[in-house]
Design a protein around this nucleic acid. Structure first.
Lengths: 146, 146
DNA sequence: TCAATTTAGGACTAAAATCACCCTAATACT
DNA sequence: AGTATTAGGGTGATTTTAGTCCTAAATTGA
């Protein structure tokens, strides 16, 4: 449907949350779930994917939980989304050569290629450190105003 | 899945086909279906949508068929896609205020807004006349080469 | 070692989207 | 009027999405 799934949305919320935590702080499913308003049992699935994709590290058992696997400024919005949704392909014809109904004869193909390029450019330009910082600033401003 | 559906893809193929026909030429489902490699019974549904959205005009019965409802340079790629898929919203939070999990507190919201803007810009920049012309040129070049 | 805690992973379900078929209604021609 | 042709619209199977729930495995601390 040309729309981000819940998987992607929730993954972003979780990783932004982790990025906003102080160095070394371990976060729990229950905690992320509550603050970011994501169903707990569903979030559990999302976190598994994030761990397996290498963006997040987990520890089981008491005192366990989740932390980012690398600095927040080395994780982009795109990477987070693709961890859950797989590589972004705006149209099937962009997956690989031969998927397009008649390959090089389709005049729409290059348009999709360009559309995907500019979309990915935007998603690549924002790191989780940026987003955590932005969230901080929004919070400050809303306090000042409210 | 952040991907165009078959509906959208087939709609684009059909409208590009109509745009490439000579003035006044009436096209049949069977004809479009064969040339553009779209299942006939499925295409029938697609054409209905295109008619109801006002991009295409139809006539039933013998000698019936489809023509564009207005000049091809006044139909954009975006309009064709949106005729089938509805308005493009890359994330639910872009549908309307209040869909976002915490409205103005979400730092990701403006990024999606920008991503959607640039995507739509690309899809708006190509008209069906452009695409028909491009298809023509591709055909000429492949003949020359091949 | 045992209990408490916390993630890992699989099985399961409801609802929606996707992809498609097939019969019906309208039209034109003879 | 009758028949062939063509779009319109309802129906259905399959897949994806979005989620729940339960058990297993790991870790900590008493």
């Amino acid at each position: 449907m040309l729309q981000l799934t819940r998987d992607g949305e929730y993954a972003v919320r979780a990783v932004v949350y982790l990025a906003a935590q102080p160095e070394g702080k371990i976060s729990l499913i229950s905690e992320i779930s509550e603050v970011q308003e994501v169903p707990k049992s569903y979030l559990s699935k999302i976190m598994q994917h994030l761990v397996r994709s290498g963006l997040v590290r987990s520890r089981r058992g008491a005192k366990g939980g989740f932390v980012l696997a690398r600095p927040a400024d080395q994780i982009t919005l795109r990477q987070t989304i693709e961890a859950l949704e797989g590589q972004i392909h705006l149209n099937v014809c962009l997956i690989k050569k031969g998927e397009c109904h008649r390959d090089d004869l389709c005049p729409v193909h290059p348009v999709w290629k360009e559309a995907q390029r500019v979309l990915i450019e935007v998603l690549d330009s924002k790191t989780m450190a940026d987003l955590a910082r932005d969230a901080e600033e929004i919070k400050r401003n809303s306090k000042k105003a409210g």
